[in-house]
Design a protein around this nucleic acid. Sequence first.
DNA 1: AGGCGAAAAGTCAGTGACTGACAATAGGAG
DNA 2: CTCCTATTGTCAGTCACTGACTTTTCGCCT
Lengths: 192, 192
Amino acid sequence: MPRNRDDVRARLQQAGLELFAEHCYDATTAAEIAARAGVTERTFFRHFADKREILFDEDPGLRPALTAAVAAAPQGAAPMAILAGAFASLEPMLLANRPFTEPRIQVIAANPALIERAEAKAASLTALLATALQQRGVEPKLAGLAARAAMAAFSYATTSWREDPSLSLAAHLDRAFQTLHGLSSPNLEPGS
Amino acid sequence: MPRNRDDVRARLQQAGLELFAEHCYDATTAAEIAARAGVTERTFFRHFADKREILFDEDPGLRPALTAAVAAAPQGAAPMAILAGAFASLEPMLLANRPFTEPRIQVIAANPALIERAEAKAASLTALLATALQQRGVEPKLAGLAARAAMAAFSYATTSWREDPSLSLAAHLDRAFQTLHGLSSPNLEPGS
DNA sequence: AGGCGAAAAGTCAGTGACTGACAATAGGAG
DNA sequence: CTCCTATTGTCAGTCACTGACTTTTCGCCT
């Protein structure tokens, strides 16, 4: 009994999230998820490459947005500034997706295999940024270094953002990149 | 027919490497590896949590060495300097293990699932460094940022080291951390 | 309206990673 | 030589994932 078209994908994700909440990720079978979505296990694996992927459906606009933002940065800008700007441009998208990403994060954080996948996704984005930087003429190895360091700052900024949403992501990013830069200078009070 | 003791582990690793070279990682079965090592598949999974782990047997001294190096750094040193020093202290260990790690890297690089695991291992080391920094009084989020940025520099340095082994790892590390610091300043020629 | 073609779903059978439970055995301590 | 224990073998089973093939549905064209 075939169904409409793409909302099968959404139903699978919803069913998965429900079942992961009721039982847990490991105790939930791909077949069970498929069944709740009114679909066969085989269909599950036609929509998602593997069971984990159901929790990692990123916004289709994310990668193009990052690439474009890096490409659009002004000539002569420092790599880190370019990447900071690219991250800042994601703010609306991140806000819009928040209700979807929020519940998934809990599930992911509770499972080593899912954490592993999350890191792989982050690494993939890092590679994307490095490539975008290279296309601006930045030497490959240097681009990789900048992308990784920037991702570290981004991670720091998003964490701060969750703790204090009163400030914009852009503000948190500014502080994160500034903090990162200061990390190499020998002036720091150990206490607090 | 039970065997000696721990060299079963080494035999399994050796057998795996051979079979991965002959066929490839995916086409090699855990049972095949076990058979070549003169052991049962069940025994394979008693020595390694999963099939991938056979390629990720890190030096048992690695983690203690990093933790100790961070703890032993002089008071008041900047986080990045502390971490750079910790990495530099690994040079002898990395040199000694090179013959073992070299062949594995090829296999790992050819397989997405293995790359994923490699990233997870790196993330685990990053977390270790962050914790070690925290124990020196560095604020948790800041420690995480420093650890990630430092790992980026370490990765850059080891890549450079492989390209130019005439310089010491310490020298490459110095340059990497310096480059990282300079990445935030707006002076860079796009050409070359 | 009726029928057609491709996209999407179902069915079936199979492989391989991994696990729990239990029996068998080697190696060392006494 | 015997007992004790760590390690391995054996067996049966679950589940993620895949290939090959059939069936259904949807959108379109006549």
